[in-house]
Write a protein that binds this DNA or RNA. Structure first.
Lengths: 254, 254
DNA sequence: TCGAGAAATCCCAACTGATGAGAATTGTCT
DNA sequence: AGACAATTCTCATCAGTTGGGATTTCTCGA
């Protein structure tokens, strides 16, 4: 546990225990994992339970509670990124069979926040909310390539063991991607698919998300790929502009 | 603000400000609404921001952050209620055009946690996470009718102004529903639709969720309705049993 | 129903972390 | 550059938090 101080952070740290691999916890397991005293842990659990973030299981233990579901509903309704990107996702999948995704870059994680699927086959499984790999794939590359140099190098160094090439090769590839304005990856995350992704940039040019189309590699042609690259590049740029203009509008309106 | 004590609860209370009507807040608005001092509020916001629950907007203000999305993904993956009910939702919508929903009863709220849609027309809009009305509709009735008498009467009294009938009529209707095992409602929530719902009961017979099919009222026939009632009643009962058996299995295995 | 064990809560002294008034700094926009 | 808004800092005070250990409540099987 890396430097958790204050009861607010200690309470929220409990939620970090819940993962795909460990969706349920008994209080004893939590006590051992977190190192809190029993009375304190129960007090924290009571708080999270009453707020709806945790739910007691019938026999013993706890799982995530309905409040996270409610909050996610609110989040998807009000997210400017989704509002700016939704029409593009729909248009993209109307023009090209595949899965179009909008993926947020959030605290060193890649998180799909919206997607559309027009693929005749099941391509991959990164539904809303599931973090994506950081060292592989077009989306990762579309984010890493636009990070400030220092951040980029730190991240690549940190995940060096996970990349399929040496560091210098990875960095060179990211430079190419940036020059190109779009990233393409074949079968890096899921065999048999090809991903094309471009970043959504904030006002300060930092990447905040990526727009991506994942298609079946077997049916991809060079002409098709070129068209998709252009479309993705243009759409991501439009979303970037939209997010900026949207904020300007709000300032004018008060 | 009803009796919030302790910094854990105070921090989580910030999240309660975010609603469909008010998805974004400036720190000043929050300060006024919650009555916290400025430094304290900023400290709390820092905690929530760093944990991913809130996100600062580019100009000013805050909205819900990606952590709620991540947690909801985990929740949908591990919810025993969804695991028990999913196949029924699919079968229901395969047999009958409409929207089949699984709705959790959570701290006096009705929250859709899973649904399937086979309706040729758009019927209603209660996606995952959006609370449903408490005084109208088949789902509400399927929960209220199975509540312990004291809870039921308290709730009906509390929401009396929202019911379309006097209290005694409502209570009588709930008694009928319970005798019947299933609730039917025409156009109470959304005009032109009919909802059929039955409760999922915990081991202690308390309602914890409802299974519901919402269909187009114009195409509903008495024979069809009777068939749907029977199916919903049986499926809800099967889900109830499943949730209990599932827990027994766990105890045996572990 | 009883008993054993697990889960959860209570008590309370010690102390540490949280609080807020007010000042200072940083960020944003014209 | 200047004005204003947003955010952070300082620090004395004290309120809330903590955890050891005891107690109570719950669950399940015989």
């Amino acid at each position: 546990m890396s430097s958790i101080s204050g009861s607010g952070e200690r309470i929220l740290a409990i939620l970090d225990l819940f993962t795909e691999a460990t969706p349920e916890w008994t209080s004893e397991e939590m006590r051992v994992a977190l190192g809190y005293s029993r009375p304190t842990l129960y007090r924290y659990l009571k708080t999270l339970k009453e707020a709806g973030f945790l739910m007691a299981l019938p026999q013993s233990g706890y799982m995530l509670g309905p409040r996270v579901t409610e909050l996610d509903f609110l989040s998807r309704r009000s997210d400017p990124l989704i509002a700016a990107g939704r029409a593009h996702l729909v248009a993209l999948t109307a023009a090209h069979p595949g899965v179009a995704s909008l993926v947020r870059w959030y605290g060193r994680k890649l998180l799909c926040v919206a997607s559309e699927d027009s693929s005749p086959v099941t391509l991959s499984s990164y539904p809303r909310g599931r973090p994506m790999p950081l060292a592989r794939g077009a989306i990762s590359r579309a984010i890493l390539a636009w990070l400030p140099k220092r951040d980029q190098e730190a991240l690549v160094a940190e995940h060096e063991a996970e990349f399929a090439a040496p560091r210098e090769t990875v960095l060179a590839m990211l430079r190419d991607t940036r020059r190109d304005g779009v990233a393409v990856a074949w079968g890096e995350v899921t065999p048999g698919v090809v991903g094309v992704a471009a970043p959504v940039l904030a006002a300060d040019r930092a990447p905040i998300a990526a727009l991506c189309l994942t298609s079946d590699a077997a049916t991809m042609t060079p002409a098709r790929l070129a068209a998709i690259r252009d479309t993705i590049r243009g759409m991501a740029s439009a979303i970037s502009t939209d997010l900026r203009v949207d904020n300007t509008d709000q300032a004018v309106n008060g």
